[in-house]
Amino acid sequence: MTHQNTTPSPGASADRTERELREALAALAGGVPEATPDTYRTARGEWLRRERRRRLVLAVLITVVFALATLIGLWVLNHAPAEPGVIFSGTGSPAATSLPRPHP
């Protein structure tokens, strides 16, 4: 019985792989449309417009949040009671009146 080697040599396998890869990349490149000369300029302009709009929306959002926080803070301060609270109603501090005096 003779044993025949059915495995291709390493060089033939590399050539086949390279050829298949080249064919696949050529087929992939064939599906990509040709770019016109001003395609980059158009895409960059659209990107810059989107970037400006995003920054403008962010600035408006920050301004609205800041104004809302300021208005809420002023409203809370305006509704605070006008009379002094329990802590400030005495002549001395609460801690000083509650501690026993040392004996001389």
Rank of each mutant, 00 (worst) to 15 (best):
W75S: 02
G73Q: 07
L56E: 12
L21C: 01
L48R: 03
A96G: 10
T42Y: 05
I62H: 02
L28W: 11
A27T: 00
T97Q: 08
S93N: 12
S89I: 05
R16Y: 15
E34W: 04
M1K: 15
L74N: 08
A96Q: 09
R16W: 15
Y40K: 02
L58A: 09
E18C: 06
E23V: 12
P81C: 02
A14S: 09
L48W: 13
R16N: 15
V76H: 08
A67M: 10
T36P: 02
Y40T: 00
Y40C: 00
T36A: 07
R44Y: 07
P100F: 14
L99T: 11
R16V: 13
H3N: 13
R54I: 06
L99M: 05
T91G: 00
E46I: 03
F66Q: 08
A82F: 00
S9K: 10
R53C: 09
R16T: 15
A14D: 10
I72R: 09
P33C: 01
G90A: 05
R19L: 12
T70I: 03
A27V: 00
E34N: 04
A95W: 14
A59P: 00
L99Q: 13
R44P: 00
R55I: 01
S13F: 13
A35Q: 09
H79E: 01
G90K: 06
G11S: 13
A27P: 00
W47G: 00
P100G: 13
L56A: 11
L48F: 07
L68M: 10
R53Q: 10
H3F: 15
P37C: 07
E46G: 04
A96S: 14
T39N: 01
A80P: 00
E34L: 02
R50E: 03
L21F: 08
L77M: 06
A67R: 05
G31C: 01
A69N: 08
A95M: 11
P81E: 02
P100A: 11
G85I: 05
P37V: 11
